[in-house]
Amino acid sequence: MVVTQPGELQEEHEHEHVHLPQHRHHFETEEQQREAASFGMWLFLLTEIMFFGGLFMAYLLYRNWYNPAFVAASHTLSIKLGALNTAILITSGFCMAMAVWAAETRKRKALVNFLGLTNFFGIAFLVVKYFEYAEKWHDSHIPGLKFSIADFGKLGVDMAQKTQVYYSLYFAMTGMHALHMIIGIVLIFWYMVRANRGEFTEGYVAPIENFGLYWHFVDIVWIFLFPLLYLIDLGAK
């Protein structure tokens, strides 16, 4: 039983082994610090799942109710652009995985380059997304701001109105996803600067690993969004 004596003053406890400058002193070991960081990241992703989970619930409910409207509205999206974006994002995810590998194998140049590539594809995704949104604006498919049911003449007027629910969810879901991308991209720029200083290639790879988890999570959300929003009823077309 060792309990600190109250009031006892001691100088900063000396660690016997050499440790990284990033080691924080409230952690006993670097191992503990690394585990805590990764555990924290997984928990954070859990909250993200709950965040998107609310939207997915709404999607399932309304898709069930207004299936014809969802199918018709889904056909106004460009599957080509969606597929292109999926490919871009998977590539970006691959680059991120390579960046983690580079950090772990202590290759500073490769790390910076792969982070840059990840970011390049991330930005490319947003550019494509911008064109898709612009098309929605042009076609008056934005509920509340600029909306008309002219493209859905085949549906009854009442069902055509329900496409607004689809577009509401489309913008809410892809918008929230894009917001996560933007946050990620800003972070990557910051990580690139730090990686260039060699911060992550001396054994301290936790930030890159954890950011990788985040980036892959954002990718996976898109992997769900793409079929749910773009590929409804593809076979029946």
């Binding site: 109710w65 207004y66 014809p68 549906l155 009854g156 007027v157 009442d158 069902m159 109105q161």
Partner: peptide
């Protein structure tokens, strides 16, 4: 919302009265 309630054997031609 007539489009959500089309009886069997009828076409969805009823306009909405919303």
């Amino acid at each position: 919302n007539p489009s959500s309630h089309v009886p069997a054997g009828y076409k969805p031609i009823m306009p909405t009265y919303q």
